[in-house]
Design a binder for these strands. Structure first.
Length: 950
RNA sequence: GCGAAGGUGGCGGAACUGGUAGACGCGCUGGCCUUAGAAGCCAGUGGCCGCAAGGCCGUGGGGGUUCGAGUCCCCCCCUUCGCACCA
C-alpha cells in the first residue's frame, strides 16, 4: 500500500470490528471482565431526524469514544452503548408533512443515523442498541409508568412508597372501595387533573412548561395559549428538595447545576393571611355570629420581616377572589382590566413590563400585624401561577412594588434601615426613599421587630404569626408538576383503562404489556384536545368481564423514553425486568455522561426524577444516575464578514465593483440590527466564498474592506439550514476520512468551548495522519509494508525523552478530556521522529497505541504494519518513566529588572549558587548591569534568574 | 436587571501552584522538487524601529500588589450563554 488512503483503511477496519465483535461487552460475571474495574461512558442518544447527522453529533461521540478506547487499554471493563430516542413530536411532524407513517420515517431516519455513526468508527457494543419505539423497549417505559402511578410520596420518610402503604383515614375507608381509590389517586406520583395547560393549536398538542419559550413552542415557535384540560401529571414537585440537595456532590459543571437550581427555584418564607376589612367589620359588629364563607387573602412572602411596610395588596387578575371583593363602582374597570390581561399572552405581559398597570378593586384588607386597612388592587405583574397568586406589597423594599406605588401614588414606608452609604448613593433619606431598598438590614417602624436584623426579624414574626393563627412558615418552588400527556399519535400509550361508567381509572396488568398503539392510517392531529388515538375506536373501546372501558387517548411525551434508556443498555434483551438488578448494581452509576447543554434542565431533571422513584422502590442501587456530566460546546458555522446595513447602503455600487455580493442577514436578537454578509463569487455558478485576504486589511486594530475602508465584523453563527452554513459529516469523511474528522473535532479547542467550524483547517490533522502513516509504512510499496527506515535499534536519548514526554502528556490530557493538547503533543512527536534517519520500532509502537483512541483506523493499520496480527483495542496503554522525561541540559532565562536579557544553557541539575554565578558572568547580563549596583539576585531553582539593579 | 463563562497574533487555540507569552494547527512569505500544477519537503512568520547587532511595545481598558502579572486584587468596557415581574 501505498500512501494513506482513509476510505480503504476505514472500510476494512469497520468491517473487522463488526465481524469480530471487537467491542462486545461481556456481562459482569464473564471471565473477560474478571478483576477489571468497570467504566460506563454514555452519550446522550440522538433523536434521529430526517436531516441526518450534524457535525455537532460526532463531537461528543468522539470524546466518549476516545475515552472508552483509552479506558479499555488501561484495563477497565467498559460499557459504551448507543441507541435512538425516536418517539415524539418532530418525527410525527415530519411524517405528517411527507404523509408517510411515522414508523416508516423513524426506521429510515434510524438507518441513516446508524450508517453515519458507524462510518465514524465508534467502539459501541451494537448488540446493546436500544430504540425507544421498539415494543420490547417501551413495554418497560409503560411498566415504569405503572410503578410511578403505584407510588406516593411520604413526606415523613422523604421517599416514594407503594400506594398500598398509604394510610387511609377511617372516614374515607368507611365510604367504601371507590372512595379509597379516589383518595389514593390524590396521592399518586402519576395523577390526572384538570389543569390550565399550554395548548398549542398549530401543533395540536399541549406542551410542558419546559417546552414553552417566551410564550411560543420551543419547536416551531408557534403561539401557545392557556386552557384547562384533563391531563396526566407527574408529581415531580414532591422530589424538589431531593433533586436540589442531591445535585451538590455531583461532578457536573457549576453552570448546569445552577440552571437546575434556578429551575427548581426554592424560596423560603411565610404564608400570611390578610382578612378582608368588610369581613372584619361584620365580625366585630356581630361578635356572637360565626362568620363563614369569606376566606382571607393568603399571600406568600420571602420577607415576612417587612410586614409592617405592606401598604397595599395585589391580586393577579385571575385570582378567584377578585369577583367577590370588587365593589360595584370598580366593577367595570376591574372587568375590563381582567379581559385585557387574558387577551395578552404570557409573552406580551412580560414584554410590556416597563410600566406597571393595575386597577383598584375598591376593597380593603387588614394587615394582621398592625390592623391597618390597606387597599386591594389587581395587576398583571403578580403571576397567578406562583405562590398564592396574591402578594402583600412592600414598596419600600421591593423594586416592583416601588414602581407600582410610584405609578399610582400609594404610600411607601421604610421598615428596614438601609446603610448610610446606600442612602447617600441613592440620594434617599430614611423617610423618603428614591428607590426600593431590597437588601437586608435592621428593622425600623416595625413594632415588636424594631432593632432586629432581618434574619432574626423573620424568625420572630413567623413565630408571632403562627401563634395568632394568621400565618406560618412556608417553602415555595418555581418547579411545577410535570405535564405528562400529549395529544399525539407517535408516543407510548398509557397502560390504563377508563371505565365507561366514570369510575376510577384502572391500571393494566404489567403482564399484558406492551400496550402497542393501533396501526392508524390517519395519524394526523385532530386539532382538538382529543388525540389522534381517539380515531381508532376498535382500539379505544374494550370490554373486559362484561364491563366497558375506553383506553387513554393521550400519549406520553418524548422525554419518557429517554428517562431510563441508560438502564436498558445494561441489560437490553431482558424480558423479565427492565434490567437484571445484579447487572444494575455492577454498572451504575454512569461514570461519564457527555451531551449538549440544551438538555441542562429538561432531560436531566426528568431522568433524575424517575431514577429517584426507581431508587425509592428498590429497582436501582443509587439515588443519582449520572456521576459526572460534561457538556460539549456547540460547533458554529464558519466565520463570515459582516457590515452594517448603513455601510452596505452607502457603498452598494463600490461593493459590486469589487465583485462582492452582500446578503441581508436577519439578526436573531430583535434588539440588535440586521447586517449584511459579504461574499465573493469567483466564477459563474460557484458557491459564494468568504472574502479573500486581498480584500481585507487591518487599520488601527480594526478589520476593514481594502480600499473602501468599511469596517468589517467577523462572526460565526449557529449552523442552520436557513443560513446555508450546515456542514455534513458525510462530505468530510469522503474527502478526508473519519479519522481526520474525529481528530479535527477534538483539535478545534477545549471540548466544552463553543467554537467555529473551519473546513480548511482539517488539512492540518489530515497532514499529521499522513506523516504518521509515512513514518511507519513504505509509501511506494504495492502492499502494506513496513517503511525501511523503521529499525530495531535503541532510540537516542533525545528521542527517548520525546517519547516519554509524549506518553505522559497524552495520558494525562486524555484522562482530563483535554484532547486538543494531547493531539498537539502527538504532532510534536511526529515532527521530531520524521527528522530521524532511522526510526526505532521501540518508540513507534507506543506512539501507535497513543494515537489509536483518537484515530482508531489508522492506529489498527499501523499496528498491523508493525507486524501485529490482532486488534490493538485491548493492548496495554504505554507507560512513561518520569526519569526519562527529564533533559540533561536546560535553558534558563536571565532577567535584568524583570526583562529577559539572556538565556543560559546549563546542566539540568545545576545548583542555585552556580546558576547565579553563571548568570552574572554572562556577557549580555554584564552589559546591562555595567555601571549599576546589583541590589538583589532572585534565583528560581532551575527556572529563572532575575538580577535587580538600580 | 440577575446569574455564569469568557476577552491572548490575520484565524482556531497553548501557557503547571505568579517565573522565557504565543506550544500545536490554519493562513501567509520565501525556497526545494516538478515541463507545469497539485501534493510533499525545508525555512520564516506578534507589532514597530534598524543593513545588522539590538532596542522599544505587546495577553479588552485603567489602576494596584510583586524582584517578576495573561495568571493575584480593585474599577470599567465588551462578547457569549442561561434566567427574567418567581414576591
Amino acid at each position: 500500500m501505498p500512501s494513506y488512503n482513509p476510505a480503504d483503511v476505514e472500510r476494512r477496519w469497520q468491517q473487522f470490528w463488526e465481524t469480530h465483535k471487537t467491542f462486545r461487552t461481556p456481562d459482569p460475571g464473564d471471565p473477560a471482565a474478571a478483576g477489571k474495574p468497570k467504566y460506563y461512558v454514555l452519550d446522550m442518544f440522538p433523536y434521529p431526524s430526517g436531516a441526518g447527522l450534524h457535525v455537532g453529533h460526532p463531537e461528543g461521540y468522539t470524546a466518549t469514544d476516545i475515552l472508552a478506547r483509552f479506558k479499555r487499554m488501561r484495563g477497565f471493563h467498559v460499557l459504551h452503548p448507543m441507541g435512538w430516542d425516536a418517539y415524539g413530536l418532530p418525527a410525527e411532524q415530519y411524517a405528517v408533512e411527507k404523509n408517510v407513517h411515522p414508523r416508516i420515517t423513524t426506521q429510515q431516519n434510524i438507518a441513516t443515523f446508524r450508517r453515519q455513526i458507524k462510518a465514524l468508527g465508534f467502539s459501541y457494543d451494537w448488540d446493546r442498541e436500544v430504540d425507544t419505539t421498539d415494543p420490547g423497549y417501551f413495554r418497560w417505559t409503560q411498566w415504569i409508568f405503572l410503578l410511578i402511578h403505584d407510588t406516593w410520596y411520604d413526606p415523613e420518610q422523604k421517599k416514594g412508597r407503594p400506594i398500598a402503604e398509604l394510610p387511609i383515614p377511617p372516614e374515607v375507608r368507611a365510604r367504601g372501595e371507590a372512595a379509597v381509590a379516589r383518595y389514593q389517586d390524590g396521592y399518586r406520583l402519576a395523577y390526572q387533573a384538570e389543569v390550565p395547560v399550554n395548548w398549542c393549536p398549530a401543533l395540536g398538542t399541549v406542551l410542558a412548561n419546559e417546552e414553552v419559550v417566551d410564550g411560543k413552542s420551543e419547536r416551531g415557535g408557534h403561539p401557545v395559549e392557556r386552557r384547562p384540560l384533563r391531563q396526566w401529571l407527574m408529581r415531580i414537585t414532591a422530589y424538589a428538595d431531593r433533586l436540589l440537595d442531591d445535585l451538590e456532590p455531583l461532578d457536573w459543571s457549576e453552570s448546569i447545576k445552577q440552571m437546575q437550581r434556578n429551575w427548581i427555584g426554592k424560596s423560603e418564607g411565610a404564608e400570611v393571611d390578610f382578612e378582608l376589612a368588610s369581613v372584619r367589620d361584620y365580625r366585630e359588629a356581630n361578635p356572637s355570629e360565626l362568620v363563614d364563607g369569606f376566606a382571607p387573602i393568603r399571600v406568600f412572602t420571602t420577607r415576612p420581616d417587612t410586614l409592617f411596610g405592606a401598604t397595599y395588596m395585589v391580586l393577579s387578575p385571575e385570582h378567584q377572589l377578585v369577583d367577590r371583593i370588587t365593589t360595584p363602582e370598580q366593577r367595570a374597570a376591574v372587568t375590563a382590566y381582567q379581559q385585557a390581561a387574558a387577551r395578552k399572552s404570557e409573552f406580551e405581559r412580560t414584554e410590556l413590563a416597563k410600566t406597571k398597570t393595575g386597577v383598584f378593586t375598591g376593597a380593603y384588607a387588614v394587615n394582621p400585624v398592625n390592623d391597618e386597612r390597606i387597599p386591594i388592587w389587581i395587576a398583571d405583574y403578580v403571576l397567578s401561577g406562583y405562590g398564592t397568586g396574591a402578594i402583600m406589597a412592600v414598596p419600600g423594599h421591593d423594586e416592583r412594588d416601588f414602581a407600582f406605588a410610584k405609578q399610582f401614588g400609594l404610600p411607601i414606608r421604610t421598615v428596614v434601615r438601609p446603610t448610610d452609604e446606600w442612602l447617600t448613593k441613592t440620594g434617599s433619606t430614611l423617610d423618603a426613599l428614591t428607590e426600593a431598598y431590597s437588601d437586608v438590614g435592621v428593622a425600623v417602624n416595625s413594632g415588636l421587630l424594631d432593632g432586629l436584623p432581618t434574619a432574626e426579624a423573620k424568625q420572630k414574626i413567623i413565630g408571632w404569626l403562627q401563634e395568632k393563627g394568621v400565618g406560618h412558615r412556608r417553602v415555595n418552588y418555581k418547579l411545577r408538576d410535570w405535564l405528562f400527556s400529549r395529544q399525539r399519535y407517535w408516543g407510548e400509550p398509557f397502560p390504563v383503562l377508563h371505565p365507561a361508567d366514570g369510575g376510577p381509572t384502572v391500571r393494566l396488568d404489567p403482564g399484558v404489556l406492551p400496550l402497542v398503539p393501533p396501526d392508524l392510517e390517519d395519524f394526523k392531529p385532530t386539532g382538538t384536545p382529543e388525540g389522534p388515538l381517539s380515531k381508532a375506536t376498535d382500539w379505544v373501546n374494550v370490554s373486559i368481564g362484561g364491563k366497558d372501558y375506553h383506553r387513554e387517548t393521550n400519549t406520553m411525551p418524548q422525554w419518557a423514553g429517554s428517562c431510563w434508556y441508560f438502564l436498558r443498555y445494561i441489560d437490553p434483551k431482558n424480558t423479565e425486568a427492565l434490567a437484571d438488578p445484579a447487572k444494575l448494581r455492577y454498572w451504575l452509576p454512569v461514570d461519564l455522561y457527555i451531551g449538549g447543554a440544551e438538555h441542562a434542565v429538561l432531560h436531566l431533571l426528568y431522568a433524575r426524577f424517575w431514577h429517584k422513584v426507581l431508587f425509592d422502590r428498590g429497582y436501582v442501587p443509587c439515588p443519582e444516575p449520572f456521576q459526572r456530566l460534561v457538556n460539549q460546546g456547540m460547533i458554529l458555522g464558519e466565520y463570515e464578514y459582516h457590515v452594517t446595513v448603513e455601510a452596505e447602503a452607502a457603498n452598494r455600487a463600490e461593493l459590486a465593483g469589487l465583485g462582492v455580493v452582500a446578503t441581508r442577514r436577519e439578526s436573531e436578537d430583535p434588539k440588535k440590527p440586521d447586517t449584511y454578509v459579504l461574499k465573493v463569487t469567483a466564477a459563474e455558478g460557484d458557491k459564494p466564498a468568504n472574502l479573500p485576504d486581498e480584500l481585507v486589511e487591518k487599520v488601527k486594530g480594526k478589520m476593514v474592506l481594502k480600499g473602501l475602508g468599511i469596517e468589517l465584523a467577523t462572526k460565526a453563527e449557529k449552523m442552520s439550514k436557513s443560513r446555508g452554513n450546515v456542514v455534513n459529516p458525510d462530505d468530510i469523511i469522503t474527502e478526508y476520512g473519519a479519522d481526520s474528522l474525529r481528530l479535527y473535532e477534538m483539535f478545534m479547542g477545549p471540548l466544552e468551548a463553543v467554537k467555529p467550524w473551519d473546513t480548511k483547517s482539517i488539512k492540518g490533522v489530515y497532514g499529521f495522519l499522513s506523516r504518521a502513516w509515512r513514518l511507519v509504512v513504505d509509501d511506494d510499496a504495492e502492499k502494506l509494508k513496513l517503511n525501511a527506515a523503521v529499525k530495531d535499534i535503541e532510540p537516542d536519548k533525545d528521542t527517548l525523552r520525546v517519547l516519554h514526554r509524549t506518553v505522559q502528556k497524552v495520558t494525562e490530557d486524555t484522562d482530563g478530556l483535554r484532547f486538543n493538547t494531547a493531539i498537539a503533543a502527538m504532532m510534536e512527536f511526529v515532527n521530531h521522529v520524521t527528522k530521524l534517519e532511522a526510526r526505532p520500532r521501540a518508540v513507534l509502537e507506543p506512539f501507535v497505541l497513543l494515537l489509536a483512541p483518537y484515530a482508531p483506523h489508522v492506529g489498527e493499520e499501523l499496528w498491523r504494519a508493525l507486524g501485529h496480527t490482532t486488534t490493538l483495542a485491548y493492548e496495554p496503554w504505554p507507560a512513561w518513566d518520569p526519569a526519562l522525561t527529564k533533559a540533561d541540559e536546560i535553558e534558563v532565562p536571565v532577567q535584568v529588572n524583570g526583562k529577559v536579557r539572556a538565556r543560559l544553557r546549563v546542566p539540568a541539575e545545576i545548583g542555585d549558587k552556580e546558576l547565579e554565578a553563571a548568570a552574572l558572568a554572562d556577557e549580555a547580563v554584564k552589559a546591562q548591569t555595567a555601571g549599576k549596583t546589583v541590589k538583589m539576585v532572585k534565583v528560581v531553582p532551575r527556572k529563572l534568574v532575575n538580577v535587580v539593579v538600580g
